[in-house]
């Protein structure tokens, strides 16, 4: 039941992400700018899946969400360096959030 819900969430989320990515790709086709580097594309994909996992785990930080938004925005501008920078922050903040909810409870003395 629960895993089914998570799966649905992931599906919807990845659909959204693909929508955004697809949008970026179309923008790239219509302009003469170079497309996103393989490295940046991979970093962005890693950030997107990290954030999706953190959502499924109910552990997403606002900082991870906004860093991913910055990375996606940079992807639209074909700014490889900015994509790499923000995607790394999003990936790290998402994984910190996931580790946090597995951590000990406070105030149990």
């Amino acid at each position: 039941m629960n895993s089914c819900r998570i799966a649905i969430r992931l599906l919807v989320w990845s659909g959204l992400v693909m929508g955004v990515a697809g949008h970026g790709a179309r923008a790239a086709e219509s302009s003469s700018k170079p497309i996103l580097s393989a490295e940046a594309t991979e970093a962005l994909a890693r950030a997107e899946s990290g954030v999706a996992l953190a959502i499924a785990k109910k552990a997403l930080w606002t900082t991870a969400a906004s860093a991913l938004a910055q990375a996606q925005e940079a992807a639209k501008q074909q700014d490889n360096a900015a994509v790499m920078k923000y995607a790394a922050v999003a990936t790290e903040q998402a994984s910190l959030g996931m580790a946090q909810v597995d951590g000990p409870l406070t105030s149990q003395h």
Binding site: T62, T63, G97, Q100, L105, T106, S107, Q108
Partner: peptide, 20 residues
């Protein structure tokens, strides 16, 4: 669990403030 679990970048649980 939700009440005592640390959350967010600032790492507070509800209880960090309202119990401790």
């Amino acid at each position: 669990r939700f009440f005592y679990q640390r959350r967010g970048q600032l790492n507070f649980s509800c209880a960090s403030c309202h119990v401790d």
